[in-house]
Each structure stands twice: as C-alpha cells, then as structure tokens.
C-alpha cells in the first residue's frame, strides 16, 4: 500500500504528489491530493475501518451478551466476569498486541481480538446493569400474571434493558472506531494506515493526516448519531420518564 510513495518520492525532499503548490508547501488540506488518492488510499482504508469496527462490535456484543446472561442469571458469576472484562480493558493495546502477535501473527485477526476484548467491558456492564434495573414490582406483576421465566426475560427484562444496552453499544462502537486507528501500529490496515504514514514522514504530511484522521472522526460521529436514532426508534417509551 505504501509503494506509491517510495516509487516517486525522494528521502529528503518528499514529492508528495505531482507538484501542486499546496502539496509543495505541505498545506493543511490539499483537495487535489484527496481527490487523487480517494480511490487508492482513503476509501479502502475507510472500508477496512468500518469492517474492523463492525466485526469487533458484533463479536464483542455476542460474547458480552452471553457473559451477561450468565452474570445476570447466576449472581455469583457476576463479580468474576466483571473483573475479567475489566482486566482486558485495562491492558494497553500495545502490550496486548505484543502478547498476541506470537500466537496469531501480524494479522487482522490479532487486531480483531484486541478490539473485541476492549468492547467487552462496557457492553457487559451495560447489559447486566440494564437487566438488573428492571423494577421489582414490574417483575412481580409479570410473575403474578403467569409469564414464564423465559417470557419474562424476552418480553419484559430484555426490552426494558434495551436503552442501557444500546447506550453501551454506542460507547463501544465509538471507542472501537478510535482504538482501531492504533491497529496500524501492527499492520497497514484501516484509517490508522494513512495516519501512521503521514506521521512517519520527516515533515508530517498534513493533508494525509487531516484527511484520514478527519474520516475517522466523521465515522465515529455518524456511528454515534445512527445508534442514537436507532435507540429512539426502538425505545420510544424511554424518553418519557
């Protein structure tokens, strides 16, 4: 992916593009460069980044949900599970990569494992807290009306926990988008690729940094807004209280 620069740029006076004035001055956002490299740098990086995030949050949610079911149903398991996700969360990502690389190598899998482990903390906490917050009188009336345990979970507890779960999903998604940029420390992948690239220039390549960093921020903001909309649509009742 970085070959284009090695081919036409010198080591001392980098030739960032094809001689636009903006690029020679290392301007803040040279639109000509952005337009020229949207197709071969920015867009692929953005798509990879979205993929990284979706897979990490998807798998993270599935695991966190199963763990939360256990921690919710059998209270004794809650503290150890909470502590487990907490420990994963506090390991610095660089350290986690060093632990993982010998096992899974310099691969996207390594990145995903790290990202997934970071989502677990907030997702697990929010799912368990949401399920626990269901008022006791609501559970009593559900039981008193003859809902089975399963029906109570699916029709009452889960929908009532939905706002907390979706809030957790929002935080996890935004955090994953930002942490995923660091993944390029390992391999050139996602929006972190061009960001690390730009930072690696003798003179920070401002246009590339701003374009790719800006895309990461935009992605985070849109994901946040999208999930907020989803939350409103799915739980219209939750804004009434």
């Amino acid at each position: 992916m970085t070959g284009w620069r090695l081919a036409d740029g010198g080591p001392v006076i980098p030739n960032f593009g094809h001689g636009s004035e903006c690029l020679r001055d290392n301007g803040w956002l040279c639109t000509s460069w952005v337009r020229q490299h949207w197709g071969d740098i920015l867009q692929p990086a953005l798509v990879q980044h979205i993929e990284l995030t979706l897979i990490a949050v998807g798998i993270g949610f599935a695991i966190a949900f199963l763990l939360a079911l256990v921690g919710f149903r059998w209270r004794v398991f809650d503290p150890p599970l909470g502590a487990f996700t907490d420990i994963l969360y506090t390991i610095p990502s660089i350290a986690l990569y060093q632990l993982l690389v010998p096992v899974t190598g310099l691969t996207v899998t390594t990145i995903e494992i790290a990202l997934v482990s970071y989502t677990l903390f907030v997702l697990y906490r929010n799912i368990v807290a949401g399920l626990r917050a269901v008022p006791p009188e609501v559970l009593e009336s559900a039981r008193g009306m003859g809902l089975t345990r399963r029906q109570t979970f699916l029709r009452v507890e889960l929908p009532l926990a939905a706002p907390a779960i979706l809030a957790g999903l929002r935080v996890a998604t935004v955090a994953t988008i930002s942490i995923a940029t660091v993944a390029a420390f390992l391999i050139y992948y996602g929006l972190g690729g061009p960001i690390f690239d730009a930072l690696g220039q003798p003179d920070i390549f401002r246009t590339e940094l701003l374009a790719s960093g800006g895309l990461a921020i935009l992605l985070a903001l849109s994901a946040d807004a999208l999930l907020a909309l989803l939350q409103r649509a799915l739980t219209p009742w939750s804004r009434l209280r």
Binding site: E137, V138, E140, S141, A142, M145, V156, P159, W237, R241
Partner: peptide, 15 residues
C-alpha cells in the same frame, strides 16, 4: 393466568 392480580405499585410494563 386464571387469577387477576393487582398490586399497590401497579407494576405496569413501562415499555
């Protein structure tokens, strides 16, 4: 299911 049950706190389903 065959007995109506009403409590002071009502316990309506908020959602």
């Amino acid at each position: 299911r065959s007995i109506g049950y009403v409590i002071q706190q009502v316990g309506l389903f908020p959602h």
